Amino acid sequence: MSVEHQPLRASDRDRDEVLVRLHTAYAEGRLSEPELDERIDLTLAARTHDDLGRVSADLPGPRPAPGSPSGRLQVAYKDTIARGGRWRVPDTFTSVVYKGRMLLDLRIAELTETVTTLRVVAYKSTVEIVVPAGVRVETAGTGVSLDAHDAPAGAPVVRVQGLAYKGHIEAKGTREYSAV
């Protein structure tokens, strides 16, 4: 076979992008749990772009908004990841964690809008979200919990839309969080 006819090799990043598409499709109800598990195995074993294309050919591709700023997505694959300190949180932020752990600390982050939506997928993972005092938290989804958190009327809102499969997503107020 000549070089020009060989399929292009897939990178770890290429596989990660397909994993995000698969988990998003699962969260949207496009894939069943057995289909997700099967496709994850195929993605992790994929050697070429053709292999990856076969795994995700029937799913919609990523739909980034034109001119959307970077920093709207964070992925942890079999790893522990933390996001905290001073940073600007976009109006919508997505976290996908696969067999890992994530801390999303908003205590000194700058919320850019009055309503911030956090879309979180935790596949066999734990995601912990720490919200500062004075911010109202709303949760929706499966496997999402919220510790009691008081906020005044008209306070900024953080909406946690989550899907935890064999995992857990927990939003906590500053009072409930003791780690430094």
Rank of each mutant, 00 (worst) to 15 (best):
D41A: 14
G173K: 07
P34C: 00
G167A: 05
R107T: 14
R86V: 08
E170F: 00
P152V: 10
V115L: 06
E33G: 02
G85Q: 08
S32H: 07
L73D: 14
P132C: 02
S125C: 01
A76K: 11
G100H: 10
Y77I: 15
D150W: 11
W87R: 03
P90D: 10
E38N: 06
L42W: 07
L163E: 11
K172E: 10
P34K: 02
A45D: 14
T142M: 00
T80E: 09
L36I: 08
Y98E: 04
R9H: 09
V75H: 11
S178H: 13
I108K: 05
L104G: 00
I108W: 00
L146D: 00
L42S: 09
L106S: 03
T80G: 04
T48Q: 05
R86N: 02
V160C: 00
G29D: 03
G84V: 06
V20W: 02
R9T: 10
H149V: 03
P64K: 10
A76G: 15
A109G: 07
P34I: 06
G84N: 07
L8K: 15
F93Q: 03
P90R: 12
L42T: 07
P62A: 14
P60L: 02
G134M: 04
V121H: 02
D147W: 01
S178T: 13
R21C: 06
L22Q: 13
W87N: 01
A171G: 12
T94A: 07
L8C: 06
V55C: 01
M1D: 04
H23C: 13
A122N: 06
Y177L: 01
G134V: 08
L44Q: 13
L146H: 14
L19M: 15
V160G: 00
R13N: 09
K78N: 14
G167Y: 09
E170K: 15
V115E: 12
P34N: 00
V55N: 05
K99D: 10
R9F: 04
G143A: 01
A179E: 13
A122I: 08
